[in-house]
């Protein structure tokens, strides 16, 4: 390639990365400026401008990507400061989708999960891109302080009610079924395995009751503190272990079909809790100390 061809190739590579309306004008200017720069470079070397000097000069000018990015403010889909958030969201979504997989009995579920993960990542890219485009157009909003230790009292009370309903539903499903169906009996295929009911099921009720007590304390206090956070993590870990034990220990229902679905449901739920627990632990370990602050230790 001769000098003109090199310059043309470089200018084309730069301008192709620019918005369409800027291309021709920028190409005309850049081509002339590069010629002048390269002639000057050759003169400084005491020789004629040749392809070798031109190539060196163009490389010194910068990569076409870098130069193009300097010509305008490019739209950044995932800003550097949000890359970790994107990575976490993508990973968490993929894990959740994998966790839900056992619920499906479809032989093509592997393909479906792969597609679902791709769709999730695509949705994330669209969300982050839209957020970035809005920020670019409107400018960053002023920071709004968030009190991470504040407790939503109404939310806590709603969760207590949900736990109560859950205990009733799992402890006395036949009674609950009769209440909603004008006295009809629960289908026999949904009867619990006797050992499960007698030895394992009560464990989860005790753990849920402890969680309800914790929520009641939070609703009264209105704030988290480090001790309550540790208790919360401990109870969640307990529930996760209990569910894992249920999956490993044997039958939940007397009949095989509901048992299969029941175990799949339990394993998915245990995995979701484990993921949530992992994120809470990671965030807890990575968070900075609250007041009163600890002086950072130098290595």
């Amino acid at each position: 390639m001769d000098v003109d061809m090199l310059i043309d190739a470089y200018v084309r590579d730069v301008t192709q990365l620019l918005p369409r309306k800027q291309r021709n004008d920028t190409a005309l200017e850049l081509r002339e400026l590069l010629r002048e720069e390269l002639r000057s470079r050759a003169a400084a070397c005491g020789g004629e401008l040749d392809a070798k000097i031109a190539l060196e000069g163009l490389r010194a000018f910068g990569t076409p990507q870098d130069v193009a990015a300097r010509y305008y403010e490019p739209w950044i889909i995932i800003p550097a400061a949000r890359t970790r958030s994107f990575g976490f969201a993508a990973l968490a979504g993929a894990l959740v989708l994998l966790a839900l997989t056992p619920l499906s009995d479809d032989p093509s579920r592997g393909d479906q999960v792969a597609l679902a993960i791709l769709a999730w990542v695509g949705c994330l890219v669209a969300y982050f891109g839209l957020w970035s485009a809005v920020q670019r157009r409107t400018g960053a909003k002023a920071w709004v302080p968030r009190d991470r230790d504040a407790v939503n009292r109404a939310g806590s009370l709603a969760l207590i009610a949900l736990i109560g309903a859950g205990i009733v539903a799992y402890a006395a499903p036949a009674w609950l079924f009769a209440q909603f169906t004008h006295g009809h009996a629960l289908p026999t295929r949904l009867a619990y395995d006797a050992t499960f009911r007698a030895t394992r099921l009560p464990v989860i009720f005790v753990l849920w009751a402890c969680q309800a007590v914790l929520l009641a304390i939070l609703a009264v206090r209105g704030r988290w503190n480090p001790v309550l956070r540790r208790v919360d993590l401990g109870l969640e870990a307990g529930v996760t272990l209990a569910l894992t034990w249920f999956v490993a220990a044997g039958a939940v229902f007397q009949e095989s079909v509901p048992n299969k679905f029941g175990l799949a449901y339990l394993s998915s739920f245990a995995l979701l809790l484990a993921i949530d627990l992992g994120f809470k632990l990671y965030r807890g370990l990575g968070s900075v100390a609250s007041l009163p602050g600890r002086a950072p230790t130098s290595a």
Partner: peptide, 15 residues
């Protein structure tokens, strides 16, 4: 000043 920095800067300042 690097030429790859200055020339694009001029266009941006114009915009």
């Amino acid at each position: 000043i690097e030429e790859g920095t200055l020339y694009p800067l001029l266009r941006r300042l114009e915009q």
